[in-house]
């Protein structure tokens, strides 16, 4: 029997296809394969940085405190900060004449900082950046079938009619252009080969948004990675829901109709 490629192999192959830069120029932050201890909220979250050579890695907390992070051969361990909400993990480097950057937003539980995630997303972190507009709200996730939007920004200016692409670990590739406000919208493909009918039972997939840019002879490339989950539409039926609502409505109409009859009978007596 011919061995099937794993999800991460497909994902990396998709990345290679996506970029016209050298294969080694890909830069992406992805979660390390899950281990038992990662279910512990106090355990560090482990990520792998593809293209870590000569990179500078930074970590930004929800209250915008920045710190330098060192990787162990591309592996990054993020310890809980005690601050609730999205944190930004990003890396940048110059590679073969291209200014490259990669970013991932990571959620930690903790004490509220009273700061909006829009502060961390719109903060100028690198010259060329992909900004989620918005991020999936706290406790929410990107899901297959969702419309997700990003702003492509260069030196604080949104880039109009700029190409961007989305690749998933389930081998989907989408390409699109930003609008006049620099905003690009993708509909996440429903591309999970196998789904189990329960939200928590399915492993999330990985998505990667990529854009590149040239300015006065300088070249830039950036990647934003995130997870996305199976659409609950696989086990949730809107049609059935509407039918049950209709059933409830008819039952209510029947009950109130009977009520009127009873009153009339009482009145007649």
């Amino acid at each position: 029997m011919k061995p099937q490629p794993t999800g991460s192999q497909i994902f990396l192959a998709t990345l290679l296809c996506l970029t016209t830069l050298e294969a080694s120029a890909i830069m992406a932050i992805r979660p390390a394969p899950a281990k038992e201890h990662q279910h512990d909220r106090r355990a560090p979250k482990i990520f792998n940085l593809t293209g870590h050579e000569n990179s500078q890695i930074k970590f930004l907390t929800p209250d915008l405190q920045s710190s330098d992070i060192k990787s162990d051969n591309g592996q990054i361990a993020l310890h809980p900060t005690g601050k609730d909400n999205y944190h930004a993990l990003y890396a940048s480097r110059e590679h073969n004449g291209v200014q490259e950057s990669a970013i991932r937003y990571v959620y930690f539980n903790g004490k509220p900082t009273g700061r909006s995630p829009s502060e961390i997303t719109f903060l100028n972190k690198t010259d060329f950046e992909i900004i989620p507009d918005p991020l999936a709200r706290e406790h929410w996730h990107y899901k297959a079938g969702d419309e997700i939007a990003f702003v492509i920004r260069f030196k604080n200016t949104p880039l109009a009619l700029h190409p961007a692409s989305l690749a998933t670990s389930n081998a989907s590739v989408l390409e699109s252009l930003t609008d006049t406000q620099g905003r690009v919208v993708f509909v996440l493909p429903d591309d999970f080969a196998k789904t189990i009918p329960h939200a928590r039972a399915n492993e999330p997939g990985e998505l990667l948004i990529h854009a590149k840019h040239a300015d006065h002879g300088n070249r830039y490339a950036t990647w934003l990675s995130s997870d996305y989950q199976v659409s609950p539409e696989h086990w949730q039926s809107t049609e059935l829901g509407a039918m049950v609502v209709g059933g409830g409505f008819l039952f209510g109409a029947f009950v109130t109709g009977l009520g009127f009859k009873r009153r009339r009978k009482k009145g007649e007596k």
Binding site: H198, S237, T238, V245, G248
Partner: peptide
Amino acid sequence: LYVDTSTPTFMTLSIIGDFIFGLM
């Protein structure tokens, strides 16, 4: 607006929720 068939509990709750909405 859905009936959730993933578990018996979710299915029961979603049916009750939809039914109450229509009834209301």
